[in-house]
Every structure is written in structure tokens, then in C-alpha cells.
Computed example of a mutant assay.
Amino acid sequence: MSRRQQGARALTALRVAALIAGATVMTTPFLYMLSTSFKPQAFVLTTPPQFIPDPFTWGNYAQAWTTQDFARYAANSVIVAVVSTALSVLISSMMAYGFARFEFRGREVLFRVLLIGLMVPAMMLIIPQFVLAKYFNLLDSLAGLIVFYVAGSLALNVFLLRGFFAALPGELDQAMQIDGANAWTRYWRLAIPLARPALATATIFTFLASWDEFAWALTIINNPDNRTLPIAIQLFQGQNATQWGLVFAASVIAIVPVIVVYLVFQRHFVQGLTSGAVKG
């Protein structure tokens, strides 16, 4: 075996070791959370930590689901995340198609102004958003969450989708125009079916952001009937003692829909992410 081959094998082994180490660091906290969710409270803080629950119990999941109206909060989160994702992907795809396919004055300026939304930290917008929500009577409502979740996700989604739409051959649009197709028909029947990878990426990002958001929901929601899952999980943490098994069980329940959405769209995820990032 030549030195070059030996060096290549050593480099491959080093890369594999680095990937294994990175994967271990990333997955260990999740595995510990999953393990703790099956432990009785008396065995949660044992030293050294036990990754295999002994004794094993399903009680934390049953208690989490039936305590403090957790099921209602889960339903609220589903409504907010699904509606926010659908509206955001629809609106951002139309905006991205307009930026990619139509020539109009100020197009690039408007696009760059839109991208400013990616540069402003979300926490800096809490007070202006609260004032707007109060002005439009959106406080303490699921609509108040949906409107601002959609608005907050448009910049990233338009950025991803515009690059994908711009990469589609212009001859396809011209062929449909010859057949008498208007702009909406070209968008709906041509661009949307071909943009499935980019749409999958936007769907995953938007759903995750809407599902896990905590600060804005905590700011405007006072009515217990309108609480979402992140607030519900926070309520399980007491002032003097925290039932970590209960908190982790609720967290695992909250993670399941995110995993399901990713598994549904993961076939297109990588392709859509890279297309939106480097093209356009």
C-alpha cells in the first residue's frame, strides 16, 4: 500500500472519528432527556447518571398529558403551527416567484429591504410587535401568534424560494405563455410542483419556528385556554422543586410532531436547502 493510500485511509478514519464524536455530543443530551422521562422522580438525579431507567415507568407521560390541560395546549400548538406554516409558505412562495420571474422597478431594493428581517434579532422586535398587536386587537389570541409567526418567517422563506425559482428554466414559462397561461397558472401549475424541495425546506423551518417559539407566546398570551406547548412545559417547573421526569416527558411529547414533519419532508430537505442557498 502506497503512502498516499495510507494517508487517505488515515484521513478518512480521522473524519469518521470526528463525526462520531460530534454525533455523540449532539445526541447525548437528547438520550438523557428521553431516559429521564421514564424515571420516577426519586431516581432522576442519581449519581452517576443512568441512561437505562431502573425502575422504568410510563407515569410521567400519563401525568404530563392529563395535568394542567396539556392536551388543549397541544391542540393550540398544532393549530398555530399548521396555519402559520401554510400561510407563510403560500405567501412567501408567491413573493419569491414575483422576485424571481418579474422585472419591475425597485425589485432588488425591495428584496434587500426584506432581507433586513434576517439581520434583526427577534427579541429586539418584541416591544414593537406588542404595540402593533395591541393596536390591532391581537393580544391574548391564537391569531396574534399566527400573524407574527408568518411575518417573522417570510424573509428566510423568500430568500430560499427565490433562488430555487430563479434556477428554473425560463423556457418553461415562455412555453406556457404561448399556450395562454397567465402568471397565476404558471406559478401554481409549473413553479410550485417543481419547487417541492425548496417548499419542503421552508415548511420544516417554519413549522419548527412556530412550534417551539416561547418568548412571543409568553408575552401576549394570558388566557390559559390559549396557551401553547412551550408555555405548558414551563408551567411544570416549580418555584422550589422541579419534577424533571415530568418536564422531560412533556418535552418528548412536544418533539414528536417536529420529528414527524421532518421525516415527511426530509427526502427533499437537503436538495431544497442547498438550492436556495447557492442559486439566484
Rank of each mutant, 00 (worst) to 15 (best):
A143T: 07
N76I: 01
Y61T: 05
P49R: 05
I127G: 01
F102Y: 14
L125P: 06
T66W: 12
L115M: 10
M95G: 09
F99T: 05
I126L: 14
P49F: 05
A155R: 02
A62V: 10
M119Y: 02
L139S: 01
F56A: 06
S93Y: 07
V158L: 15
L138W: 04
L138P: 03
L139Y: 01
S141W: 03
L138D: 02
L125Y: 09
G59C: 03
A71D: 05
R101I: 08
Y135W: 10
W65N: 03
P55V: 04
R105H: 15
V80F: 03
F130T: 00
V82S: 06
L87E: 09
L118W: 03
M94G: 11
G98T: 11
F56N: 05
I91Q: 06
I127S: 02
A155Y: 04
V131A: 09
Q50M: 13
I79F: 03
S92E: 07
D54Q: 13
V120Y: 07
F148H: 11
L160N: 12
A74M: 14
S88W: 06
A62Y: 07
P49L: 05
N137C: 01
L156A: 09
A86L: 13
A133F: 02
P55L: 08
L154Q: 13
L132H: 01
V147M: 08
L125C: 12
G117V: 04
P53M: 02
A122G: 12
S77K: 02
A143I: 01
P49G: 09
S84D: 07
D140Y: 00
D140G: 00
F51I: 09
F159T: 06
R105Y: 15
V150R: 04
S141V: 02
N157P: 08
L90C: 10
G152R: 13
L114W: 08
F111Y: 15
F159I: 06
Q129D: 07
F99Y: 15
Q68F: 04
N60R: 04
Y73W: 11
A151D: 12
L138H: 04
A96S: 09
D140W: 00
I116K: 04
G98L: 05
I91R: 08
S141R: 00
A74C: 10
V147P: 04
L139H: 00
L90Q: 06
I52H: 09
S153D: 13
V131L: 09
F70A: 02
A122R: 10
I116L: 13
V109I: 14
M119C: 07
P48K: 07
N60H: 10
G59H: 14
V83I: 15
S88R: 05
V83Q: 02
T67D: 13
G106D: 09
S77H: 02
A122Q: 13
A143E: 02
M95R: 08
R105S: 14
G144L: 03
F56W: 12
D140H: 01
Y61G: 08
I126W: 01
V131K: 05
I127W: 00
L132T: 03
W58N: 05
I79R: 00
V131W: 02
S84W: 05
L125I: 11
R105L: 15
T66C: 08
A151G: 14
L154H: 11
Q63T: 14
G98D: 04
Q63I: 06
Y135M: 11
M124I: 02
A62I: 04
L138F: 02
A75N: 03
P48N: 08
V150M: 04
R101S: 14
